[in-house]
Amino acid sequence: MEIAFRKADSLKNHPDQSSLGFGTIFTDYMFNMDYNPDQGWHNPRIEPYGPMEMDPSTIVLHYGQTIFEGLKAYRTESGAVQLFRPMDNIKRFNQSGDKLCIPPVDEEFVLHALVELLKVEKDWIPSAPGTSLYIRPTIVATDPYVGLRVSQTYRFFIILSPVGAYYPEGFNPVKIWVTSKYVRAVRGGLGEAKTAANYAASLYATEMAHKEGYTQVMWLDGVELKYVEEVGSMNIFFIIGDELITPMLNGSILAGVTRNSVMTLARSWGMKVTERKISIDEVYAANEKGELKEIFGSGTAAVISPVGHMKFDGTEITIGDGGVGPVSARLFKELMDIQYGKAGDPFGWTVPVA
């Protein structure tokens, strides 16, 4: 399919790169494409960023039939632009769509469309240290119908946002609150999909955590409220002794691209990496024995987020000395060096944008 282009009447002023937050500023253009049963995915176009008109009865507004992804474009020291494992995000996009009964997109065409959009918006990709261009592909159901059924029509769009650090703390350790009262997802549900309902389910407990002075919630399994699953916006890792442990994918945990990158890097160093069930009681027992060395989260937005303090059932523990651990620091540096082109990419993860 040929991608049409509609020029904007005027362009926005670019923000100060030294004060970028996360997800509040958007570029001049977006990519749009539509779906109906007769034409399939059609009418791909790059056009000015702006509101989308929806009927008040549109299915996505009432039943949440929607999926999204998150990835980034990085500007290297030479001024070149590259993506990090974009096909993994696009493949996961279709996997989420399967859970929400959304017709699949052509993965190679989506990458092509993204690259074309980035070429148009290349001047929006920041170059200040630690900044990047966040990319949000999304599909929403667009049938005007107040009735619970699968939509027949959809809108696929990609929006772009220049960003700095995801957490106000930056790479400094965050504080995590573990809830044994609320659950986010259960096996057989939507926990492994990037869909609105998956994140809406986390809002109430997250607000409670914020009121207690904690950055994020760490969720336990939805059946026994015993086993660690993930943090609101991150997968979670524990270093106990000399072993790097992360909860295994069980249908209620998102298969993070950064999660996989962390495990691949750590194994390449010769570390023992294990995916298995790990209970919150085991974590606290390891800390009591002095065996819990580090906890950190991983995700596209924050990359690596060290955990300095964690509270569960009224007891707060300090992880290590409360600072950034050596493994967290090394992972953060090596991942960032690959993403920004400061180091070689032995895994073939980066994709240049011409």
Rank of each mutant, 00 (worst) to 15 (best):
D221L: 11
V178S: 15
W269S: 09
F68T: 06
D34G: 13
V60A: 14
F157R: 08
G314S: 08
G170F: 11
V174L: 13
V257G: 03
M54P: 07
I338L: 05
P103M: 10
V110L: 03
D9A: 12
W219Q: 04
G322D: 04
S305K: 01
R267F: 04
E294A: 12
T246I: 00
L114P: 07
P306W: 08
I278N: 03
L133P: 03
S96V: 11
A73I: 11
Y35A: 03
M54F: 15
I239E: 00
L71I: 14
L111I: 09
T138I: 13
Y154L: 05
T264F: 01
L244Q: 00
K175G: 08
H210S: 02
M271Q: 11
I240W: 07
M248I: 12
Y167M: 06
G130D: 03
A197I: 01
I135E: 11
E282F: 06
L225G: 11
V324R: 09
D337M: 04
A141Y: 01
M234D: 02
M248A: 14
A193D: 00
Q65T: 13
G23P: 01
S202F: 03
P126M: 11
P247T: 03
T315G: 08
V223Q: 13
I253F: 09
D143V: 05
W349F: 14
I67F: 15
T179Q: 14
F296E: 10
V327K: 06
K226E: 14
I3P: 04
V228Y: 01
K12T: 08
M271S: 10
G320H: 06
I253T: 15
M263K: 09
N287V: 02
I59K: 00
V150W: 08
S161Y: 14
N36I: 09
I90N: 11
T246F: 00
L111D: 06
P86A: 11
A255P: 12
K342H: 15
Q95H: 11
E116T: 14
K72D: 10
R92N: 06
D34A: 12
G164N: 05
I25E: 15
E282P: 05
K72P: 15
T300R: 02
R92C: 15
C101P: 02
F93C: 03
A285T: 00
V223C: 04
L244D: 00
W349I: 15
Q339Y: 06
D242Q: 15
T274D: 03
E334L: 13
L118F: 10
I239F: 00
N287D: 06
G23W: 06
L292N: 10
I90A: 13
L11N: 07
T258N: 02
T76I: 04
D38T: 09
V257S: 02
Y49N: 07
E2N: 14
K342C: 10
G50M: 06
L117C: 08
A205K: 08
L83Q: 10
W219R: 11
Y167G: 02
I253S: 11
Q17M: 05
T264L: 07
E207D: 15
S233R: 06
M248F: 10
Q65V: 14
A354I: 14
S279C: 01
Y182R: 09
I59D: 03
D321G: 15
V351N: 05
G299A: 02
R187E: 09
A185N: 12
Y199M: 00
L249V: 13
S78T: 13
